[in-house]
Design a protein around this nucleic acid. Structure first.
Lengths: 231, 231
DNA sequence: CGCGAGCTTGACGTTGTTCAACTAGAGTGG
DNA sequence: CCACTCTAGTTGAACAACGTCAAGCTCGCG
């Protein structure tokens, strides 16, 4: 699973998270030295809720599902994370335990940074820490949106929401190749996989979307948006 | 509503939030000068979702309901906050807009600190900012718990959860005078007020709790805990 | 003493889950 | 290259969970 040989370089990397942009060249070199580059195959677990959080991770490429594990072994998706997002910030300055799990939805390359190095930068560099706060709060905004979605909307609206989220934030195209399974979608919209099928079928009938195998196309964005707002 | 005359003093205040403990006396004096002390009566709105967030607030005394407002004018309770908790940290370094509303469940005294002063401290003092990160992440843990509660448990479990939360974290006693209405409880457990009544009645019949007017008593903590875990 | 907000209760309809049977497609070994 | 298996997806029927509505009640307050 792990690939020791690094192919990326912090100093020249264009995908840096906002907090890293404010660091100096010397810091980038230091981080580069305290960094691991790991490949994960589709389905593999990247971090495990409850495990000791020894590092903070940055998605260099690929798609990640961040989720909570429940008593009855179900998954509650917190977020689908594309490249350039960070994983594990919520473990900072706690008891250094991951609050959630994350797994690779597509093959991924992950940069893993020692959590103590990260915490040291926060402690010694207020501007760096402020960027971390900013990032945490942007997660918070997304969480609140999902909160409202799940508590207030019913199935049609929740699935419409999920499809729009994927279109706008993940695949960034109204036509895309779906890499999430029915089950992933179900965990995302908080319903059973059977219900996902039923509603997708209805959406197809109503010409809102077109599905050919894994290929999805949003045919009527506006109505989908209305459904997500009203139901 | 506002009381200009300050009765509290930052330097001697024993209720400081963890991030303030690491500041020096000079900083406490500075904050004391950039601080307002405001009284809110039960029911009054302390901060309004979407409004310009010009300050961060600290609950000196009283009980606060932090909640999201939805399109259809319903409230989703994020948290019930007791004294010594902060309100509005999620507005830091964003577009300085409150991500949620908060209202007084009981009469409150609130210390209000200029958000720019607060952000300046974060930027210039990594240790201060790190404490803020720690606080944000402890909110995150609570949010995740509520997330699981609301998505996975059904009504009995959700109400049991709410009652245990109030017992352990708010009133800190198995016997307490309930200051939340049926409606508040309903928003907290994400169900209708009618359902709250029905389940409370069932809990009373089953001798799990005793209710005399506003006075609540947890009679069978262990079983309530089991219900919160299993259902 | 009467009014009104908050609470209680029952009947009913809707939403969404569960279970079971079935289908399609991808991967595997002979 | 074909049969076999295994997983993911689909579909329908039955049922449980929960909200809504309407009517009645209670208690604090003017």
């Amino acid at each position: 699973m792990a690939v020791n040989q690094k192919k990326i370089n912090c100093t020249s990397c264009k995908k840096k998270s906002s907090c890293f942009n404010i660091l100096r060249k010397a810091d980038h070199k230091f981080i580069d030295a305290n960094r691991l580059e790991i490949k994960f195959k589709k389905g593999e677990i990247i971090c495990k809720q409850g495990a000791f959080a020894s590092n903070i991770m940055f998605i260099y490429s690929g798609l990640v599902k961040s989720y909570l594990e429940t008593e009855n072994d179900k998954h509650v998706v917190l977020n689908i994370l594309p490249a350039e997002k960070m994983i594990g910030l919520s473990a900072l300055f706690g008891n250094n335990v991951f609050l959630h799990s994350a797994s690779a939805v597509e093959d991924c390359v992950i940069c893993s940074i020692d959590i103590k190095t990260f915490e040291n930068y926060c402690n010694s560099n207020g501007a760096f820490a402020s960027e971390v706060i900013k990032t945490l709060n942007s997660f918070c905004t997304e969480n609140y949106d999902r909160y409202i979605c799940i508590t207030q909307k019913q199935m049609d609206g929740r699935l419409a929401d999920a499809l729009l989220y994927l279109t706008n934030n993940i695949y960034k195209n109204r036509s895309f190749s779906m890499t999430l399974s029915r089950n992933d979608l179900a965990e995302m919209a908080n319903m059973s996989p059977e219900s996902i099928t039923r509603i997708l079928t209805k959406f197809k009938k109503d010409k809102l979307i077109k599905i050919t195998g894994k290929q999805y196309e949003i045919k009527n964005y506006e109505r989908l948006l209305k459904i997500s707002q009203l139901e």
